[in-house]
Design a protein around this nucleic acid. Structure first.
Lengths: 117, 117
DNA sequence: TGCATATATGAATAGCTCTTCAGGTGTCGT
DNA sequence: ACGACACCTGAAGAGCTATTCATATATGCA
């Protein structure tokens, strides 16, 4: 069953891993989540929201130093994926991180980088 | 200083956020980390390692159902970024997740998806 | 109603990424 | 030393992505 000649203990581990492994669908969704965090502009937007709690589009553009349009495009992707949430106040729209998991992900990875460096 | 006319409290928040925000360099490194997790093949490889602890290239290819070559390319990126580590045993090379942070990231995001769904 | 502001959207292009193919390196068994 | 095996690497093409420009929608104010 293996593609290569693995020692006995490995064969068992391979079988067990294949059973417990995330499904392709789940993997796709996980990858999609990470992929959305994996762009410098979007990452900065998210960390800005992590610090500020809530910001409108133009302030986000100002903080991150990107065009309003680029921010809007980025936020649409993040919003569609449920990573950020929005609320309207007059003509401005305030964005925030969608939930605690996202906050933890951002926090954890920042820590990771600070320790690895 | 703002790109738009923000209410008073917001202006303060914008200034504070700009100060505390991750630097562009840090953001780039964070995005790079996430970007590497953000591919279905690499994600499956990492979750396979999360389950198995350690696997050689050909067993990884077998579990994830991808070409040896594709796995090799993927692992090189992950290894270079310090996300996985490797050890040679004879002609096989065993890969494992590099550290606890990576494991936590994978765990946390899987939980996130399971709760959101 | 008319104008300015804040954000969203669509199309297009430049740049990047993943996979595959072909070939290369290193290790084991005989 | 030779052949088989496990893995790596470089080049190339198909496909995807992020930004920009132009335009559209929506809200507030006079």
């Amino acid at each position: 069953m293996d593609g290569c000649v693995t020692p006995e203990p490995d064969a068992a581990r391979v079988a067990a891993t294949r059973d417990r492994l995330v499904t392709p669908q789940e993997a796709t969704r996980l990858a999609e989540l990470f992929r959305l965090l994996g762009d410098p502009t979007r990452a900065r937007l998210l960390y800005a929201l992590l610090e500020a709690g809530e910001l409108c589009v133009c302030d986000l553009a100002d903080v991150v130093e990107v065009t309003d349009t680029a921010v809007s495009h980025a936020l649409r992707l993040l919003r569609t994926a449920g990573i950020v949430a929005s609320r309207r106040a007059g003509r401005m729209i305030y964005y925030r991180l969608a939930d605690g998991h996202v906050r933890m992900l951002l926090d954890l990875s920042r820590e990771h980088l600070r320790e690895v460096t």
